[in-house]
Design a protein around this nucleic acid. Structure first.
Lengths: 351, 351
DNA sequence: CTGAAAGCGCTAACAG
DNA sequence: CTGTTAGCGCTTTCAG
């Protein structure tokens, strides 16, 4: 790589303010002014725009950022872009930040811890003006990186933050409460199928004794893992209801149930968590605990923008209330279908 | 958490190489060398690392990019991050580019043309070293922007490129051929349900006369649009098979069919397009035309990396062969369930 | 209203 | 092996 004057093989190096200024016969300062909409004479403006047009000039973002100290970009770092939960959060963040003139970049770490850390570090190295991150769990390394981050960071999680241990803005939700809502619903609205007393006692005495197999999938919130766990479960017992850790697992459980000869919801009620777009698409549609993804995203975005504007702000931690969205998969009556289901969201779009 | 000298809230500016050099009692050049792993003495290395540690120093990406001319970042611009097709492409791009040491940023334009253009322009302003874009359709503005782009761009589309009209690397697939495969499959494997002769004639004479209602949804490749179109369709006729423009629409059609009292596949065969992750999740699982998303992503990534390395390369356009993946929704026999379906991908993971 | 000039933070020659 | 120095491309005082 002979580096010398760059590498303009067939091409002369791309134009700079310099080039534009020369072609326009004005100073670089004037070019900059025109480009940034600062006061300039009619003639000047025309000359500069002309030159810009002719050269196909585009300002260099790196140089501009260096000087300005801002990039006009924000980032959202997630484990898995494919997960519908993050999609909902992301859309919310984006709509808020875009309105404020920022571009949102999404970066996926694919559940790799090292990648996540390197991302957290490098993205915050002023490639962006701020960062929203949805980590699965917070390690000491995270804490360290968050503390050092030269740009504002907001953490969005789906589960209650167990006292993050760092001073950061945090938006969480009480997923435990959400699951409780779902449990109450299952117990109350699906009577006759469930041995209520034993169930309640079991819950009280040993935690969730009949869910041990599903617990095996913890940490792997994927369709595949859910499907296998559900198969194992149905090979052993025929439960009356299954509470799944997320929608992907719930949908997988629905399939496994059908294959095992269980009808949903007549024989088996199923509830998922996250209230993703998926829940309204499957048949029967899936009851799910909404963790307020859209709302969390919106709040996170607002927090981030506010902190960018005013870095000294005290750190805030809010928790969004979970909400149970009942659909066909746990409908009280065996009759599901045209009555309940259009497959569309009913009411607010706040997932 | 008093952090020593970090955390100057009302704040002294963040540390620079300058600061580090002073604290370490060495020159800025030495700091840079140590940080970039260039030859340095043991003692020097220690001193610098020490100072870096104490200051919590992180290099400024903008400055580095400005100097180096590279950002080590690539971007993938899509209309809708929520669409599973793009997710597959994205994963493929990322795994290739990450191996080459680049970070991938995803940017969603939410089907907004203006946003897409502004994104295309600004992202390519050297915020990234290269760009993959999946536009829905190419306008003159696109052509203009692509022509001017100061960084390499690769276009990935799902449909055959109608001669893009610009010199760019392009990765497409012959979706028309894909649909033909699906049509042949539907006609051949679902006999007895279909009035073959009339159907074939109809195809030959008038295009796809019985699909007019679905055609209404063109341009809106969403679940909601698909659901409504399917409802309209089933209110008018009871088709033997429906070929849907993508998986989202197909899944919506499945629900509408069920609600209309049509069993899938016994009464109605359904085939989607894109072979997304969704296709294996729904019940019955969805037959779908694979447009080779993963492969397209991989090729696009390779093209981009190669062009970054060697800008003078001639522009390439490749087309990936489509492939029909038959699942339950169009299974030849009315018997579906445990036989066909695990809900898992069978064979290659090449969507 | 416009031009000259001083850097933003970093890397890469070039000397020493 | 280490320090000095000249910019990368742009914005922004400060004079004119």
């Amino acid at each position: 790589m002979a580096h010398l004057e760059a590498d303009p093989p067939p091409g002369i190096s791309r134009p700079t303010v310099q080039t534009v200024a020369e072609l326009a016969g004005v100073s670089v300062a004037s070019v900059s002014r025109v480009l940034n909409g600062l006061p300039a004479s009619e003639a000047m403006t025309r000359k500069v725009r002309d030159a810009v047009e002719r050269l196909g000039y585009l300002p260099d973002a790196a140089a501009r950022s260096l000087k300005a100290g801002r990039t006009e970009q924000l980032a959202y770092a997630v484990h898995d872009v494919g997960n519908p939960t993050y999609v909902t959060v992301m859309r919310a963040i984006e709509s808020v930040t875009r309105a404020a003139g920022y571009r949102l970049l999404v970066s996926s770490t694919d559940a790799d811890h090292d990648v996540e850390m390197s991302l957290l570090r490098s993205l915050s190295q002023r490639h962006v003006d701020g960062l929203v991150i949805s980590p699965i769990r917070i390690t000491d390394e995270h804490r360290e990186a968050l503390r050092n981050a030269p740009v504002p960071v907001v953490v969005v999680t789906g589960s209650t933050s167990e006292g993050l241990g760092v001073e950061v803005d945090t938006v969480t939700t009480d997923s435990r409460l959400g699951v409780e809502l779902a449990m109450a619903h299952l117990v109350d609205t699906v009577p006759g199928r469930m041995r209520l007393e034993g169930y309640r006692n079991g819950l009280a005495n040993h935690g969730l004794p009949r869910f041990d197999l599903l617990v095996e999938t913890a940490g792997e919130f994927t369709y595949a893992a859910g499907y296998q766990a559900a198969q194992r479960l149905f090979a052993r017992i025929r439960p009356d209801a299954v509470m799944c850790a997320n929608d992907l697992i719930a949908v997988a459980t629905m399939r496994a149930a059908t294959e095992a000869g269980l009808r949903v919801p007549q024989d088996l009620a199923i509830v998922g968590v996250d209230d993703t777009e998926l829940s309204g698409m499957v048949y029967p549609s899936l009851s799910s605990v909404s963790l307020g993804s859209a709302e969390r995203g919106r709040i996170a975005a607002r927090f981030l923008l506010e902190r960018i504007k005013e870095p000294g702000l005290p750190h805030r931690q809010v928790s969004v209330a979970p909400r149970l969205v009942i659909r066909e998969s746990s409908a009280p009556t065996g009759d599901h279908g045209s009555r309940t289901g259009s497959g569309q969201e009913q009411g607010t779009d706040d997932r």
